[in-house]
């Protein structure tokens, strides 16, 4: 590269100082050959800067982005990601108060709705079996199943504290094998009772776990009902 050529290249690369550029322009002005050579190179540079630019095709962009995108998650992975993604709970005082009010009302409403409830209880083995309690009254009751084996009886009823010792109020039903049963709702408490066979024969429950004297020389069966 001769000196003039170097000067042209440095001019094109903008490596010349302002003074050198002035000097360069003076030189090319005086040298038509150099001027033409310089102008040819300037044309190349100018035309190169204006070459049309290619716009990447939509297909290229979509395919490329699809290739760097994560594979689609299975439904299980999506569910797992949903439930395991850490979340930030943002709150303020007004929101917290509102949420607390809603919670209080909800809990109070829940208590009002669920007062009748089902309770299972254990009672001593015997003819009086607790089945369950289920009542809509405020005080829960326990369903007690009374059982008496009397194959020869025509009727069996029960009289006790819970029915005013009136055998007509609570009759047992006969089932196969001479087993007589009745299911009665009782509030929690301690009751004495006796079976009445054929309307005249009073007998204590032979399967009762506890008995108590009736004050007249006989024994009443005792049933403890508790929740």
């Amino acid at each position: 590269m001769d000196e003039q050529e170097l000067l042209v290249q440095r001019f094109l690369d903008q490596d010349l100082t302002p003074e050198e550029r002035v000097e360069f322009l003076q030189v090319v002005d005086a040298d038509p050959t150099l001027r033409r050579r310089w102008l040819n190179l300037e044309m190349v540079v100018a035309e190169a800067a204006q070459l049309p630019r290619m716009t990447p095709s939509a297909k290229f962009l979509s395919e490329l982005k699809a290739k760097v995108a994560p594979p689609p998650l299975s439904w299980w992975e999506q569910l797992w990601a949903t439930v395991t993604t850490p979340r930030t709970f943002e709150w303020n005082l007004a929101g917290a108060i509102a949420a607390a009010c809603v919670a209080i009302v909800s809990v109070a409403g829940l208590f009002a709705v669920i007062s009748p409830r089902v309770v299972e209880m254990q009672v001593p083995a015997g003819s009086a079996q607790t089945i369950a309690t289920s009542t809509r009254q405020e005080e829960p009751k326990v369903f007690v199943r009374l059982i008496l084996l009397q194959p020869g009886a025509r009727s069996v009823s029960v009289a006790g504290d819970f029915n005013g010792w009136d055998p007509a109020q609570t009759k047992l039903e006969r089932s196969d094998g001479g087993v007589w049963t009745a299911t009665i709702p009782l509030k929690p408490g301690r009751y004495q009772y006796m079976f009445v066979v054929d309307g005249k024969q009073w007998i204590a429950d032979p399967l009762a776990a506890e008995e108590a004297t009736d004050g007249f020389g006989a024994q009443n069966a005792v049933l403890d009902v508790a929740i």
């Binding site: 630019r53 290619m54 990447p56 290229f60 962009l61 490329l64 982005k65 760097v68």
Partner: peptide, 17 residues
């Protein structure tokens, strides 16, 4: 991956050209 998509949008023209 959206961020890399932005890098693609930003530099695709120069790279393709």
């Amino acid at each position: 991956h959206e961020a890399f998509g932005q890098l693609i949008d930003r530099h695709a023209s120069v790279i393709v050209n």
